[in-house]
Design a protein around this nucleic acid. Structure first.
Lengths: 247, 247
DNA sequence: GCTAAACGTACATATATGTGAATTTATCTG
DNA sequence: CAGATAAATTCACATATATGTACGTTTAGC
């Protein structure tokens, strides 16, 4: 069950992140098609809690810097080491595609850092974007770091859907793909989840965190050179990852 | 009316900002005294929207960097000029008290930047903290920048409460205090809103934004030297504010 | 290696909550 | 400066929603 008003808070924040200027109650209500009275209650709640204010009289609401302060506190804990961002920047620059760092979230994989391609036709992904862990290159690169028991536990919760012609629709299919990935030396996906989308990924354990790096883009561009892309990822990781400890 | 589930989202985030480590469903439910099923729904919603993930298997949830990404987008718009933070840092250092930048939010004043005192006994304020605009030094420094009509419009919405012995409990009382403040050259408050708390504030218009700076601390420390503190604020603003344009 | 306790998940139901309509307040227009 | 128009706010009621209860799964203790 989705908690509507919780989702609405997130939507309001995303709205402000997009328009980047104060908005009045009416504007917000109209934008979302929400009743004014409900919008009023929501804005009042956010204001009362100190997350919204009125920068100029009658010019509407805008989030207070409190969001930033809180987000900073939260993200200061175990931030990704800086070289991982360099990693995906470099990968994106060299391949011209979108590169991301991915982490597990139950049966899904979450993008926790993204550098987007500059190409007109590109894989559009943002931080927080989620994809099925078993039906994507990045997700399978995470699964490779699990023990058999942990994988089984995940499998039990997966609802196998045929997202595309090549989607693995059984535990065996996924396990088979994982075995092939190990031999191949990297994970790949050709429209397993999103149509026309192809990607190459490799595991990226950092400390005790299980992450992965992925480069993804339109099938027609990535397709012919997956192996090259995968090799590039591996080389770039080798180059950037600090040699000292295992971390 | 307060939207409970909207408030809960904020509480969860504040919780993570405090504990700074992943938490399981059970921990969160117990912490807030929420039913597990409700907590489950909330966490599921936040996860589905890409704001929560599971950094390590079975170690619970933690916010994704998406919060940070969004907060950054939002705060990049018209950030406070850097000298305002220097301003309150310097003020806090020199006075040993808490210094803040304050903005209006209807009948309230919101702290939008804070540098806390290092003293054991100190004014504890955080970004997002709200106080009544008419019953605080910082708030009245905002009101001084309003036209008479704008002030009247605010007054109509104020619920005058006797927070302390010196709280102004009528429009006339507030207006009188404002007139005195103009003569005096700064705004002050001695427990008008919070017991034992005293502060000195001056208006700080930046561009078309109406802000104020305030230095506040325990009455026994600030009391004897309000005038000095106020003078220091004025001098420091003069020193730091760029001379060029009016902004 | 087994048992018990803790944890996570699903669902039906009573109730807390969102909302349409009415009221008040602010803004625009001639 | 009215009168009109639009926005913000309030409130009572129907309904969408939070939660008690029950079930399956995982972890910890012995």
């Amino acid at each position: 069950m989705i908690v509507r008003q919780a989702a609405n808070v997130l939507e309001i924040m995303e709205f402000f992140a997009q328009v980047r200027k104060p908005a009045t109650l009416a504007e917000i209500a109209d934008h979302f098609g929400w009743p004014r009275s409900s919008t009023f209650n929501l804005l009042a709640t956010l204001s009362e809690k100190g997350y919204l204010y009125e920068p100029r009289p009658r010019a509407g609401f805008y989030p207070t810097p409190r969001w930033l302060a809180m987000a900073r506190m939260i993200s200061e804990v175990e931030p990704l080491p800086p070289w991982t961002h360099t990693l995906i920047s470099d990968l994106s620059a060299e391949t011209g595609e979108t590169a991301s760092i991915v982490a597990p979230a139950g049966v899904m994989a979450v993008f926790i850092d993204v550098v987007e391609s500059q190409a007109a036709i590109r894989y559009f992904a943002t931080i927080g974007h989620r994809v099925p862990i078993h039906a994507t290159a990045s997700g399978r690169a995470l699964l490779l770091q699990y023990s058999q028991e942990e994988r089984d536990s995940v499998y039990r919760k997966i609802e196998f859907k045929q997202y595309g012609p090549s989607t693995p629709i059984s535990i065996e299919a996924v396990e088979a793909e994982l075995r092939i990935s190990i031999e191949r030396g990297y994970c790949q996906s050709f429209g397993d989840y999103s149509r026309d989308l192809a990607g190459a990924a490799i595991p990226l354990p950092i400390g005790d965190r299980r992450l992965s790096v992925v480069v993804a883009g339109p099938e027609f561009r990535i397709g012919p050179k997956v192996a090259d892309v995968a090799a590039l990822i591996a080389r770039t990781v080798d180059r950037l990852r600090p040699k000292t400890t295992a971390a």
